[in-house]
């Protein structure tokens, strides 16, 4: 309504009522511009424009000393698709595929673990519930590097885990359980679990139990109760959890770097390499571009689901 007010007041001489104050529209415009400009300028110049510039940098050439030359080329895209100096290799595409698979499996595992946790939290009496939530929030707020580092310790060859695995014959005696694919998944799930569990808990807390009871009264088995009475009601929370996990999991580089080693790289590690040791920004930009497009795709897919969930 106020917006219309402002648009109807054509000239600067008109005076309108804004939040109880009689002012000229031009003053209102000056004020709103002043309020938003520092924040919006920072986001545009430091994030939005550089993200758009990735489209340009991805098609430039790397100079001999790692500088960017303004010579347009498709070399980075070709390299990403695996056409190198020594013929075609699947390495880069494999890393890309692996990133998507790791993100997908991590999200799925987190969802499976989150439901029992959410029901457990929601069933706590009001007095202790806040305490339990805090217990879940502490790992969520603990620094990522420290939490990943802690897994290095647990997986060390001297610790019980590696000894039991060696005793069972699943690992060589005297070796650590990292770097390995298994260690990466354990690390990823432990990092992202709270991101899924908290939104699902919020949905479970608001659950309309009469629908669940009705389903049970009508002799639904456990799976059908979950599928038809619980899942539709928790879908909004679930889709928030999926977005919060799948998107950052694709770009994660700390966990695979520390627990996966050089043989289990994800796209995040590859990007970090280009901006770090390799100093090949154009190729790094091409990789970032791919990750950005994958992110947008994932965001669009889950936001579509969220709208359907509401209807």
């Amino acid at each position: 309504m106020q917006g219309e007010n402002l648009e109807h007041a054509k000239e600067a001489s008109t005076i309108i009522l804004h939040n109880g104050e009689m002012v000229r529209p031009s003053i209102i415009r000056a004020r709103q511009a002043t309020f938003i400009s520092p924040g919006i300028l920072a986001i545009i110049t430091l994030l939005a424009l550089p993200c758009i510039s990735l489209f340009a940098v991805a098609f430039m050439t790397r100079g001999q000393y790692g500088e960017i030359l303004f010579e347009p080329t498709f070399g980075n895209i070709r390299r990403l698709l695996g056409f190198g100096y020594f013929g075609w290799s699947a390495d880069n595409l494999l890393i890309l595929w692996r990133s998507v698979v790791v993100a997908f499996v991590t999200t799925a595992l987190c969802i499976v673990l989150s439901y029992p946790l959410a029901f457990f939290l929601a069933a706590r009496p009001a007095k202790t519930r806040l305490l339990w939530l805090t217990v879940l929030l502490i790992p969520f707020w603990t620094n990522l590097v420290i939490r990943t580092y802690a897994w290095l310790l647990v997986f060390d060859s001297d610790m019980p885990f590696a000894r039991i695995m060696a005793w069972l014959g699943l690992m060589e005696p005297g070796t650590s359980a990292y770097p390995s694919q298994f260690a990466v998944y354990v690390g990823m799930v432990s990092v992202f679990l709270p991101f899924v569990a908290l939104p699902i808990y919020t949905a479970v807390e608001k659950l309309d139990w009469s629908i669940v009871e009705a389903a049970v009264d009508l002799y639904s088995n456990k799976w059908r109760v979950f599928r038809h009475a619980i899942l539709p009601q928790t879908l909004p929370g679930l889709s928030v959890g999926i977005t919060l996990t799948f998107v950052p999991a694709m770009g994660m580089f700390v966990v695979p770097d520390m627990l996966g080693g050089a043989r289990y790289m994800l796209i995040g590690n590859l990007i970090q390499q280009q901006f770090g040791t390799s100093r090949d920004w154009p190729f790094g930009a091409a990789l970032s571009l791919v990750l950005m497009i994958l992110t947008l795709g994932a965001l669009m897919a889950t936001s579509g689901k969220r709208k359907k969930g509401r209807a």
Binding site: L49, P50, L54, P248, G251, I271, A285, L291
Partner: peptide
């Protein structure tokens, strides 16, 4: 995602 944010900042 963190890493794209970081890349954008480095470029800026």
């Amino acid at each position: 995602p963190d890493i794209i944010f970081a890349v954008a900042l480095v470029i800026a």
